[in-house]
């Protein structure tokens, strides 16, 4: 009854308007995906003529066959998988170890250990000193140039630390009485209790590594070492005739449907896991916000 009274004409107009705006948001977000998808299935002349919008024109799978028959595409795709797996594993090990240490409130020097990490959130060396360092360490053209400099994300570290701090101490103390040492407690008591959190962290890191391109672009000179993101970037750089250094620049106009197919193939893994990972990410953002 009361709500009925309050639903004035203005409110009803607002509701309709709101629905229209939100629908527009959805359309604007999805539209580019559908357009790229349509282009990936269309033939070259239809695209050139500017006829492809939401539906493919001259439907064919030739471009998919063409791109997937390029061995460099698969080499780079495999690189992405390898880099993501290795980098995520190492980042997880480092993050868990340090977060566990930081979560022990009784530890002497804990504040200093926390500060060492947090300071790097606000001060960074910057592009040039990092580049000089990686180069002089001889890490160029190796997977370690991608893995090592990104081994700990401080934001993730703090989320993990907060999680460990919230675990009940009694279990660990009981395990200590049973004669387990610190490593044993971490491996057999703490980690099994943290499965959900670890899964979230793995997602955080692996999506970031999967999507990253700049580190590889910066430190890899040989095309067989590139991840698929840089493969794509070289395609689009070739298409605009951009001469930003590092990548190869060709005068050959790379046909639009090849780009579209590469976009689709690069995005597919993310789109497939997206429905499952989305809520973990949202939760992670909240956790981080509560900390910060």
């Amino acid at each position: 009854m009361v709500t009925k009274v309050r639903d004035t004409r203005g409110v009803r107009v607002f509701r309709v308007l709101n629905a229209v705006i939100l629908t527009a948001v959805v359309v604007v977000t999805v539209y580019p995906f559908l357009n790229v998808l349509a282009r990936s299935f269309s033939d070259e002349p239809s695209i050139r003529a500017g006829e492809v919008n939401l539906l493919p024109r001259g439907f064919n799978l030739r471009t998919y066959r063409y791109v997937t028959s390029d061995s460099m595409f698969w080499t780079n795709y495999r690189n992405t998988v390898v880099y993501t797996v290795v980098a995520t594993l190492i980042a997880m090990a480092m993050t868990i170890c340090y977060a566990y240490v930081l979560s022990k409130k009784h530890l002497r020097g804990r504040t200093a250990l926390v500060s060492i990490a947090v300071v790097t959130m606000f001060f960074t060396g910057g592009l040039i000193p990092n580049y000089v360092l990686i180069t002089s360490l001889g890490l160029k053209n190796s997977i370690w140039a991608i893995v090592l400099p990104n081994a700990i994300n401080v934001f993730n570290l703090l989320v993990m630390k907060a999680f460990f701090e919230a675990l009940p101490l009694e279990l660990e103390e009981a395990a200590a009485v049973d004669g387990l040492n610190t490593y044993g407690i971490l491996l057999r008591i703490v980690l099994p209790l943290s499965k959900a959190m670890i899964a979230t962290m793995v997602l955080f890191y692996s999506v970031a590594f999967w999507n990253s391109w700049f580190t590889a672009f910066l430190y890899m000179d040989r095309s067989e070492l590139l991840p698929v993101t840089v493969y794509l970037r070289n395609l689009i750089a070739g298409a605009t005739g951009a001469t930003a250094a590092g990548g190869s620049t060709t005068d050959i106009q790379i046909s639009a449907n090849i780009q579209a197919v590469t976009i689709v193939l690069t995005v597919i893994p993310i789109l497939l896991v997206y429905p499952f990972i989305q809520r973990y990410f949202v939760r992670g953002v909240m956790l981080g916000a509560v900390k910060g």
Partner: peptide, 10 residues
């Protein structure tokens, strides 16, 4: 969730 490269390409 998309790579910035993909966004630029789109």
């Amino acid at each position: 969730f998309l790579s910035i490269v993909v966004v630029a390409a789109i």
